[in-house]
Write a protein that binds this DNA or RNA. Structure first.
Length: 827
RNA sequence: GCCGAGGUGGCGGAACUGGCAGACGCGCUGGACUCAAAAUCCAGUGAUGGCAACAUCGUGAGGGUUCGAGUCCCUCCCUCGGCACCA
C-alpha cells in the first residue's frame, strides 16, 4: 500500500487549483458574494511566521466552509510592504528596500501558496506598488480637501532609533511599537488626520457591530470618552489690576465637588502662565524648563507630585468666592481637557497627594451619609458618590444630581471630552508613500492656497499622481527631523500648482497604517485603472462579510480603517448598501496568539517557529490541522512539536482507510449505511456548528471520533458516505481530501462541492442513559426509551440493585426527575 | 488603580440551558508484531484505599444558594490582555 506522499500531492493540487481558478470568484457576476478577508501580512525579516499560518488557516477554513455552502467566496491576499519594519530589515541586511521588497514578495507568496489557502491570487496587491499607492495619495488629497488633514507644530512622540515621529497609537508604554526604544518628545511640525472629529461615531458604532468583545473594549478605552463640565475661575492679582475677563477654564468630571476645590493647577505649558503678573518668575521658569527637559517617560514615572505656586495671583472659586492659590504642576497634562484643573484633594487621589505634599487645605464636600452628625475623617481621597456637605444651598443633594445644578449655578457648561488625539500621519522616513503635497513660499506670503488656514499648501493635482518614490541610495534616516527625501532636490523641486513658481514638495512619507486603512476596498477592484474602487464592484462585495486578524491591532489598524471608511462615506466617495450600515467590517473576529513554551514568540527569545520546516516535514494539511486543534481559534495556543504526531497519525489513518477501501471486497452498497448513519449525521451537525463559531478544535475532535467509528465498521461505509466524510474534512485538510476525492472517480474539485446537510431523523436516538443519583451522587445508569415518564423511570431506577443498596430502606424524601436525563432520590 | 478574559489530569484542551467532570489529542505504562528498533495495532492512564466489586476525595482558595455547582452568588489569591497622573 502506498503511503501518503504529501509533498508531491500538495504541490500538485496547489498548481492545479491555480490553473483551474478554483478559488477565483466571478467578481463581476457573483450571485452570493462572501468577502472573507484576513489582515494582510507585512513581509518582514524571517518570512512567514507560524502565527501568520495560524491566522490564515483559521480564516481559510471558514472561507472554504462558506464556499461549500454555495457562496462565491472571495479570499484575497496581498502584502503590506511599506513601512519602518520592512525598511529596518533592509537597513540591517544592507539591501535597498526596493530590492528587498521584491525578494520578500517572492518568498512570501511562495510560502503563502504552500499553506494551501483558497486565495484569489488574481487580485493580489502590494502597498508599495505605484498603481496602489497612487490611490493612497489620492485619499490623502481627499482628506485634505475635506478639512480632515492639517499641519501643526506640537510636541510629538519621537523614536530616536527609528528616527521618526510616531502616532500615539504606536507608542506602547512609552516605547516604540516597532523597535521598543524609549520614545522621546519633540516639538515638530507634522501632518495630522482629524480622527477626533469622528470619536463619537467611532464609539457609538461599536454598539452595532459584531466584533470580539475584547477589541471593542480596547477601542472604547482608547477613545476614552468622559462627560464633564467646563468651569471658569476668575483670576485676581494683589499688585496689578487684571482685566475683568482674566480667567482660567478647567475641565472636570466632578462639578459636584466644586465647593471642595481648594486650589487650581495649570499644566506648565499652559499659555496663561506667561501672561500673569507672577512674583516668583525665576522659580516658575525654572520649573517649566525642568518639565520640558523631561521625557514623557520620566514625567509619568515619577508619580510623586511636584509643582510651583504662582505667587501674586489667586483664583476665585466661583461657587463660594473663596480665594485659592494657583499652581503649575506636571501632573496636569497640556493636551487633555483645557490643560488646567480645579483641585479637590478630598475627592481626588492625585489632588490629595499634591495637597499633602504642599500642605494645602482639604475640604470634604461629599459624605456618604446625610444628614450626618459628623463625617468621617478622611485618610485618603474619597472618590465615590454621596451627599453634598459644606456646599451652601446644595447641601444634602446627591452628587449625581448636583453635577448639572452646580455647573449651571456657576455658569459652566457641559462638555464631552475624549482621550483620543488626532492621528499623526507623517513619517521622516524613506520607505513609504510620499505625502502628495506641495508648499509654495510665494503663495504663503500672499495668503493664497487651497485651505484658508494653511496658506501656501497645495495638493499634487490628480493627473500628476502618483508621486513616485524615487530610488535613492541614501535612504537611511538621519534623525534631523526630516525625511531622507529632503536631501534629494530632483524629488522635492517642483512648481506650484497655484502660481507656477518654484515650490517645494513635501518630503515626509505617510504612516504605513494609511496604506492598510483602505486596502480592503482595493482588492475587488484590483484590476480597475480608473478608480481606487469601482462603485459597482464595491456595492456588490462590500462591506466585508468576515474580517479576521490579530487583536494586537485593536487600537491601530482597526481604528484607522474605520475612521477612513466613515470619512470617505461622508465625502460621498464611498457607499455601502443601505442595509449594511456604514462600518467596513460588520463582523470581526480576533484570533488568538500562538505562543511557544508559555511565551510570545520573538526573535530575542529565540523561540520563533518557522512554518517551512513543518510543512516540509509533515505537510501543510498536517500543520494546518495541528494549529487548529490546539485550542479554540479565538484563544490561540501553545506550540509544542510533540503534539503534531497526533495529526500525522490521523491523516495517515484516513489515507490508509481509503486505500484499503479501494481494494477490499465490499458488501453490496444497498446493505451499508445503517450502522454509521447516526454518527455521520451527528458529526455533520457538530462540524457545521463548530466551524460557524470558529471552534475548529472541537470540530477536528469530532472528525477523529467519526474516523474511529468508521474504522470499526469499515465494511458499512458506502461510497456516498466516503464522499461525505471527505467533505467534512476538506476545509481543514484541503490537499489530501482533494486527492482522495479524485481517487473516488470525481472529476471536479471537492472544494466547490455542496456542504453536507444532516437529517434530524438520523440523529434522533430512541434510547438514552438515565443517570440515577442518590442524594446527588451518581450510583447507577440504565438505558431506557426516550420520553419515558417519571413514574416509569422511577420504577426502573428503583429496580437497580446498586440503588437499593444505597437507599438502604430509607424513606424517600424527594424525587427529582429531569426528562431523558436523570433521576435523583433524596433520602 | 480601573476595565476585560481566564485559572479543570503530567501537558494542550472538552463539558448543552445547573444534571455521569476530564471528550479528542499529546505524553506515559503494559502487551502484540520484530532478531532488534522505528512505525503500526491492542489495553490502561485524575488522586487515595482495595485482590476485586467498589468507596472516598477531586475543576485556584474560602464561604453560600440548590436535590444536585467546573457552571449561579459573595469574599479573596493568581495569570493574561487593554487603559492609566486623562482631572
Amino acid at each position: 500500500m502506498k503511503r501518503y506522499a504529501f509533498r508531491n500531492i500538495e504541490k500538485k493540487w496547489q498548481k492545479q487549483w491555480r490553473e483551474d481558478g478554483t478559488y477565483e470568484p466571478n467578481i463581476g457576476n457573483a450571485k452570493k458574494p462572501f468577502y472573507n478577508l484576513m489582515m494582510f501580512p507585512y513581509p518582514s525579516a524571517e518570512g512567514l511566521h507560524v502565527g501568520n499560518v495560524y491566522a490564515f488557516t483559521g480564516a481559510d477554513i471558514y472561507g472554504r466552509f462558506k464556499r461549500m455552502q454555495g457562496y462565491d467566496v472571495f479570499e484575497p491576499i496581498g502584502l503590506d510592504g511599506f513601512g519602518i519594519h520592512s525598511e529596518n530589515y533592509a537597513l540591517k541586511i544592507g539591501t535597498h528596500p526596493m530590492e528587498q521588497a521584491k525578494i520578500s514578495e517572492k518568498r512570501f507568496y511562495k510560502q503563502l501558496e504552500a499553506i494551501g489557502n483558497g486565495f484569489a491570487w488574481n487580485e493580489r496587491l502590494e502597498t508599495y506598488d505605484p498603481t496602489y499607492y497612487r490611490w493612497t495619495q489620492w485619499i490623502f488629497t481627499q482628506m485634505w480637501k475635506h478639512g480632515l488633514a492639517y499641519r501643526k507644530e506640537q510636541s510629538v512622540n519621537w523614536c530616536p532609533s527609528c528616527k521618526t515621529v510616531l502616532a500615539d497609537e504606536q507608542v506602547i508604554n512609552e516605547h516604540c511599537e516597532r523597535c521598543n526604544s524609549t520614545v522621546k518628545s519633540r516639538e515638530l511640525e507634522q501632518w495630522f488626520f482629524r480622527i477626533t472629529k469622528y470619536a463619537e461615531r467611532l464609539l457609538n458604532n461599536l454598539e452595532n457591530i459584531d466584533w470580539s468583545e475584547r477589541v471593542k473594549i480596547a477601542q472604547r478605552n482608547w477613545i476614552g470618552k468622559s462627560e464633564g463640565a467646563l468651569i471658569k475661575f476668575e483670576i485676581q492679582s494683589k499688585t496689578k489690576k487684571l482685566t475683568s475677563n482674566t480667567y482660567v477654564e478647567v475641565f472636570t468630571t466632578r462639578p459636584d465637588t466644586l465647593f471642595g476645590a481648594t486650589y487650581v493647577v495649570l499644566a506648565p505649558e499652559h499659555e496663561l502662565v506667561s501672561k500673569l503678573p507672577i512674583k516668583n518668575q525665576e522659580e516658575v521658569k525654572k520649573y517649566i524648563k525642568h518639565t520640558k527637559s523631561k521625557t514623557e517617560q520620566e514625567r509619568i514615572e515619577h508619580k510623586d507630585k511636584t509643582g510651583v505656586e504662582l505667587v501674586g495671583v489667586k483664583a476665585i472659586n466661583p461657587a463660594n468666592k473663596e480665594l485659592i492659590p494657583i499652581f503649575i504642576a506636571d501632573y496636569v497634562l497640556p493636551s487633555y481637557g483645557t490643560g488646567a484643573i480645579m483641585a479637590v484633594p478630598a475627592h481626588d487621589t492625585r489632588d490629595w497627594k499634591f495637597a499633602k505634599k504642599f500642605d494645602l487645605p482639604v475640604k470634604m464636600v461629599i459624605c456618604t451619609h446625610y444628614p450626618a452628625p459628623t463625617c468621617p475623617v478622611l485618610e485618603e481621597a474619597y472618590e465615590g458618590d454621596g451627599h453634598l456637605v459644606d456646599s451652601g444651598r446644595f447641601d444634602g443633594m446627591k452628587s449625581k444630581e448636583a453635577m448639572r445644578k452646580i455647573t449651571k449655578y456657576v455658569g459652566g457648561k457641559y462638555k464631552t471630552q475624549y482621550r483620543i488625539r488626532d492621528w499623526l500621519i507623517s513619517r521622516q522616513r524613506y520607505w513609504g508613500v510620499p505625502i502628495p503635497m506641495i508648499f509654495c513660499k510665494a503663495c504663503a506670503a500672499d495668503k493664497k492656497g487651497e485651505q484658508k488656514d494653511m496658506p501656501g499648501w497645495y495638493t499634487v493635482p490628480e493627473k500628476d499622481l502618483p508621486v513616485e518614490l524615487p530610488h535613492i541610495e541614501k535612504f537611511r534616516p538621519e534623525g534631523t527631523g526630516k525625511s531622507p527625501l529632503a536631501s534629494v532636490p530632483e524629488f522635492y523641486e517642483t512648481t506650484c500648482p497655484g502660481c507656477n513658481e518654484v515650490a517645494r514638495r513635501e518630503t515626509d512619507v505617510s504612516d504605513t497604517f494609511l496604506d492598510s486603512a483602505w486596502y480592503y476596498l482595493r482588492y475587488p477592484s484590483a484590476s480597475d485603472k480608473q478608480h481606487a474602487w469601482n462603485p459597482k464592484t464595491t456595492r456588490k462585495w462590500l462591506p466585508v462579510n468576515l474580517y479576521t486578524g490579530g487583536a494586537e491591532h485593536s487600537v491601530l489598524h482597526l481604528l484607522y480603517v474605520r475612521f477612513v471608511a466613515l470619512a470617505l462615506q461622508d465625502m460621498k466617495l464611498l457607499s455601502f448598501p443601505a442595509i449594511s450600515g456604514e462600518e467596513p467590517f460588520p463582523k470581526f473576529r480576533a484570533h488568538g496568539l500562538i505562543i511557544k513554551d508559555g511565551a510570545k514568540m520573538s526573535k530575542s527569545r529565540g523561540n520563533v517557529v518557522n512554518p517551512d520546516e513543518y510543512i516540509e516535514r509533515f505537510g501543510a494539511d498536517t500543520l494546518r490541522m495541528y494549529l487548529m486543534f490546539l485550542a479554540p481559534f479565538e484563544e490561540g495556543g501553545d506550540f509544542h512539536d510533540a503534539g503534531i504526531l497526533g495529526i500525522v497519525r490521523f491523516l495517515d489513518r484516513v489515507w490508509k482507510l481509503f486505500q484499503s477501501l479501494h481494494t477490499e471486497n465490499q458488501m453490496p452498497e444497498k446493505k451499508k449505511d445503517v450502522l454509521l448513519q447516526r454518527i455521520l449525521h451527528k458529526t455533520i451537525k457538530k462540524v457545521s456548528e463548530d466551524i460557524e463559531v470558529l471552534k475548529y478544535n472541537t470540530a477536528i475532535s469530532a472528525l477523529m471520533v467519526l474516523l474511529g467509528a468508521i474504522e470499526e465498521h469499515r465494511s458499512h461505509l458506502s461510497v456516498a458516505n466516503r464522499q461525505l466524510f471527505l467533505k467534512l474534512l476538506a476545509p481543514f485538510a484541503p490537499h489530501i481530501t482533494e486527492e482522495l476525492w479524485y481517487e473516488l472517480g470525481n472529476k471536479t474539485s471537492i472544494h466547490t462541492e455542496p456542504w453536507p446537510k444532516y437529517s434530524p431523523k438520523f440523529i434522533k436516538e430512541d434510547m438514552f442513559e438515565l443517570v440515577i443519583q442518590v442524594n446527588g451522587k451518581v450510583r447507577d445508569t440504565i438505558t431506557l426509551p426516550r420520553g419515558i415518564t417519571e413514574t416509569e423511570a422511577k420504577k426502573a431506577a428503583l429496580a437497580s440493585e446498586a440503588i437499593q443498596k444505597h437507599l438502604n430502606d430509607r424513606k424517600l424524601k424527594k424525587v427529582v426527575f429531569v426528562k431523558d436525563r436523570l433521576i435523583n432520590f433524596v433520602v
